[in-house]
């Protein structure tokens, strides 16, 4: 299936990826090619087949409701590009 560059633009916005007009052209072409392979799935008889989300058939384990972590603020902020007074710092969020 060919894909419109408008759709690619929208997808880039959803994915929060700034793309140049050049990249838009490349991605539009490449995604169209890739989606061309995807269309092979149309031949697969999937009616009534249970979707498979997990590689193995197990159930979720549950843990006890116990607090196991202690204050680790400095380690949690150590990799932050910008932080201030124990907080992560980001450009002003306008609500």
């Amino acid at each position: 299936m060919a894909i419109e560059s408008e759709v690619v633009k929208h997808v880039a916005t959803l994915a929060r990826l700034n793309i140049t007009s050049e990249e838009l052209t490349t991605y539009t072409e490449q995604l169209s090619n890739i989606l061309g392979i995807m269309d092979q799935l149309d031949q697969v008889p999937t009616d009534g087949v249970e979707p498979m989300s997990h590689a193995v058939d197990v159930q979720i384990p549950e843990r006890d409701d116990v607090v196991t972590n202690t204050n680790n603020q400095s380690a949690m902020l150590a990799n932050a590009p910008d932080s201030e007074e124990g907080h992560f710092r980001v450009p002003k969020i306008i609500e």
Partner: peptide
């Protein structure tokens, strides 16, 4: 935000992300 690469001088939040 929490770790990893951040662009120079983001204008706003969306610019920071994108």
């Amino acid at each position: 935000v929490k770790f990893g690469y951040r662009c120079e001088n983001p204008n706003d939040l969306q610019d920071l992300y994108s």
